[in-house]
Amino acid sequence: MLNILVIQDTDWIERGPHQQHHIFERLGRKGYSIWVIDFEILWDKYEKKSYFQKEKIFQNISHVVANNKIEVKRPPILKIPLLDKMTIPIFHTISINKIIKNKRIQVIVGQTILNTFCGLILSKIYRIPFIYHVIDSIHSIASDYIPKYFLFLAKVLEVFIIKHSDLIITVNKGLKDYIIRLGGSPEKTFIVPAGVDFKKYQESKDRSRIRKKLGIKEDDLILFFMGWLYEFSGLKELAEYILKHPKLQAKLLAVGGGDLYPYLLSLSKKTDKIIVTGQVPYDEIPIYLSAADICILPAYKNEIMMNIVPIKLIEYMAAGKPVISTKLPGVFREFGKNNGILYCDNVGELVQIALKLKENNKIEGIGKRGLNYVKKRDWTILVKDFEKIMKRTIKNRKKG
């Protein structure tokens, strides 16, 4: 079995589960030894006890799979805005170098930009295969947590990583096109799409119980969203639309924490049409999802969302729920028409589509279309694909 180092400059523990958690936790359970370098990107949201945080090591961290043999190593952090990011190349390079030498790393997988760049340079020095695992337009997402005048540098580093990685794995067609536009080799860019644990989503039979717990009536039409509640998620606009039209027979159920949680929580205290739960354990997601009638992705059509296909869409479809989404290029290219997803241009149109589905008794039928479309997306299959690509990269590097 391989010794794998995964590098990302965001939080492995508090964020997710994302694609990387599903893949590497399952690889860890199969017997691979996996170390993760991460960065506590939300440190400023917690009480600051000092300006310097020493290295931390976390073991037995599980998002989706127990006994996964993953160790998370969090390099020191200088807890001063901007300097926290600027010192990543120093602290993270030292930590990556130690792991490479002490753990006999055989392949490095980079997920983001800044510390991934450091890992790429060290991979060249130690002649270790380097895979760039792209699940987002990284430099676009960076705009959320670094000043705008550094975004040009972020894109320069992203292009460098793309051009000098041994291989690139992305999660959808739109991101593959994005990689190629930035100079990536089509022959070295592969797709391992987002997946789902079908058994978990098919076995949930708790609809009546969870709806009763949340105060949802049998005839209420529930529009469901789960995940991080970003400012650009469109949920603020949807919630306000619902409140401005009190006669609408529709309610919003948002499961997750994040930027918009305090605002949505304040609305939920004024009306029963907005329901929020905060973050819930991942194992309980199928239970909450069973309460839904229609799942939604009313996200802004911005640079961050243009090419991605959120993993939540696959989970919605695996549960047999129809989905209404903003017509994002990445999502539309991935699923097209008549495959369980309907598209809208604004939250008003989203609500009207949902009401028509209920009125015409089409909720179940469209949900089944989506379920049939994603049946080949089981994680068991996709992890094997990722594993094969990774091993082939190592083999090719040895030949070279």
Rank of each mutant, 00 (worst) to 15 (best):
E40K: 09
W35I: 01
G31R: 00
F39L: 03
Q19W: 10
G28S: 01
R26L: 09
L42S: 12
R29H: 12
R26V: 00
K30L: 10
W35K: 15
P17T: 13
S50C: 03
I41P: 02
Y51W: 12
E25V: 08
L27E: 05
W35F: 14
D44Q: 11
L42R: 13
I37A: 04
Y32V: 03
Q19T: 14
D44E: 15
F24I: 07
D44S: 14
Y51I: 12
K30A: 05
K49C: 03
K49P: 09
R29E: 11
S50D: 11
G28K: 01
Q20Y: 15
K30V: 01
Q20A: 14
I37K: 03
K45E: 14
K30W: 02
H22K: 09
I34R: 05
F39Y: 14
L27T: 04
E47K: 15
F39I: 01
Y51R: 06
Y51M: 12
I41F: 04
W35T: 07
E40P: 06
D38I: 00
E47Y: 12
K30S: 04
I34N: 05
D44K: 10
D44F: 13
F39T: 02
H22I: 05
K49A: 07
D38T: 04
H21I: 06
R29N: 14
E47W: 06
E40A: 11
Y32A: 05
F24S: 08
R26H: 04
P17E: 08
L42N: 15
H18L: 15
H22C: 12
D38Q: 00
K49I: 10
P17Q: 06
P17A: 12
G16K: 10
V36W: 00
H22F: 15
K48Q: 14
K49Y: 09
K48L: 12
G31Y: 02
Q20V: 13
K49G: 03
P17V: 10
Y32M: 05
S50R: 05
K30I: 01
